[in-house]
């Protein structure tokens, strides 16, 4: 069984809207349903609408793998609605965790660090580098995810053990650590060490102690106010 280019492009385009109607009771439910419906034949739509209307949530870039596998299951017509639901509940949690770790926690912050360092030193090269490199990885998962999901069916979950997840994350963890050190190069903009060191320690303690993000932003506001007054 093969996925035609037309169907792949339709699923890809719709997947860009996966979180458009994100709400607390269904999360990406409507987005997922819309994406699956553009991928399957007319005859399956009523059945899908009846059985797959519930909550769905995963990492937005990883949804391609799950939609690909789901469309394959409906094309084959062998699996029951219950079996598909079971697959979805396992797949959405597994891909959410892998996607969060890979993109939100590693790749994006590492590339943003690189963009800031390059941007401050060399101007527009920084933001452009981020956009190009980040979207190579982003679009790879969005597009390849659909075809891999379709080709592998429910075995798509085993891809989480592959290099595109594990190795890329390990590499960007190392890159992120190097870039953390390279942040010192921004001291070239004549910044006082005497303030950077204690403030870094203060914010690091707040992060380790898991202070809420709002609390940290409020303390930044306070620091801006104090430095401004001094």
């Amino acid at each position: 069984m093969r996925l035609s280019l037309g169907r792949l492009l339709r699923i890809f385009f719709q997947s860009l809207f996966i979180q458009t109607s994100w709400s607390f009771p269904s999360m990406q439910g409507m987005g997922f349903l819309s994406d699956v419906l553009v991928g399957v034949g007319e005859d399956k739509r009523a059945e899908i609408m009846k059985t797959q209307k519930g909550l769905f949530n995963t990492h937005p870039y990883m949804v391609s793998y799950i939609v690909g596998a789901t469309v394959r299951a409906y094309d084959e017509g062998k699996a029951s609605a219950e079996e598909i639901k079971r697959f979805l509940s396992v797949a959405q949690a597994s891909f959410a965790s892998a996607g969060d770790l890979l993109f939100w926690r590693t790749l994006r912050p590492a590339l943003l660090l690189a963009a800031v360092i390059l941007g401050v030193h060399y101007g527009i090269i920084g933001p452009l580098t981020f956009l190009v490199v980040y979207n190579i990885f982003h679009l790879f998962h969005r597009i390849k995810g659909i075809s891999d999901g379709y080709n592998l069916g429910w075995d798509v979950i085993y891809l989480l053990d592959k290099r595109r997840f594990k190795t890329v994350r390990q590499v960007f963890e190392a890159v992120g650590a190097v870039l953390s050190g390279l942040l010192f190069s921004l001291i070239a903009v004549e910044v006082s060490y005497l303030l950077v060191i204690p403030l870094t320690a203060l914010f690091l303690i707040m992060l380790i102690k898991r202070y809420s993000a709002v609390m940290i932003i409020l303390s930044v506001l306070l620091v801006v106010l104090i430095i401004g007054m001094v």
Binding site: L183, I187, V191, V196, L199, T200, F203, L207
Partner: peptide
């Protein structure tokens, strides 16, 4: 820059 670098270092 002081605030950005401090929080950037802490975050990274």
């Amino acid at each position: 820059a002081i605030i950005g670098i401090s929080l950037g270092l802490a975050n990274s």
